[in-house]
Design a protein around this nucleic acid. Structure first.
Lengths: 153, 153
DNA sequence: CGGCGAATGTAGCCATGGCTACATCTTTTG
DNA sequence: CAAAAGATGTAGCCATGGCTACATTCGCCG
């Protein structure tokens, strides 16, 4: 959906985008949507490997609530981006980069949920909302969340 | 991108989706992406009307950083959903429902930014992150944010 | 070790959101 | 008031994420 072939969609580093001011914030929020999927997959694959020792296409599909070909496509993309690898009929594995990303995502997710709960959000709602929000939490904001949670104790 | 023709994608009402438990949270987060666009458009149109008395396709396109045909399509969708109306070569206007949604979105946005700032996030980062996060903040969570902000004073 | 059921892979379709190119209508302006 | 400039509309293409249908391959049993 990004439809932005000329845009390399670089890493989540804070790129101030030197010019203009309005359009970019929307553009960024929207292109992040593409990142969201990748993050979900990587995190889930990490979870499955941790839980069951392997991540099978079918399991991923079931957990995400999508059909298996959808997962196959997504995994192909993860491989393209160097986050995972797999061999036909064997499971899916994370590369070092993938594992690192998964860990980062998982941490961020936990932090966000903790924050929401700390602010009085019921934990099930916190989980639900965090699932959508987390992909848009920048490192700076995440740090602020951690600081708040740490100070609060 | 939703690709869910059989899913009417009803109004933002809390539909608990009676069965299953894992897949849905992802599905919900993802289908919310479609809502995000609508919300952005409605909010922006509201802003433009407030600022300049009218919302022109070109202005919307420029603010969102997309080409004008993209906006034309989106506006067609808003009209389909009863959130806006327009006549060729005249501007775009919000229906009552559209204006209500715009107001809700704007309020939520402000609340989220305030919260982030209150937690120590720099205001420019808060604005940027909020743009992406806001569409995933449920009413329950929003209420918690408001309560926190109110109590904090 | 032959089969059968489950898991994967592949092909091909749909919808959406973006874009470019080109046609038209409006609005300025000389 | 006609022409140029600017704003919209329309057509048609691309990529992505989903899905269904059909073809293979694996693995477990009998």
């Amino acid at each position: 959906m990004t439809g932005l072939p000329p845009e390399p969609a670089s890493s989540p580093g804070p790129e101030p985008t030197p010019e203009a001011e309005s359009p970019d914030r929307f553009a960024q929020a929207r292109s992040a949507q593409s990142v969201a999927l990748i993050e979900d997959y990587v995190e889930l694959i990490g979870d499955l490997i941790a839980e069951q020792g392997e991540a099978r296409i079918t399991d991923i599909a079931q957990r995400l609530g999508v059909a298996h070909p959808t997962v196959t496509k997504a995994v192909a993309r993860l491989k393209r981006e160097g986050l995972a690898n797999s061999r036909p009929y064997r499971g899916v594995f994370l590369t070092e980069a993938g594992a690192a990303l998964a860990e980062k995502v998982r941490t961020r997710h936990r932090t966000l949920v903790s924050l929401l709960v700390a602010l009085g959000v019921p934990s099930d709602t916190a989980e639900l909302d965090a699932e959508g929000m987390e992909h848009h939490v920048s490192d700076v904001t995440l740090a602020a969340f951690e600081a708040y949670l740490a100070a609060r104790d």
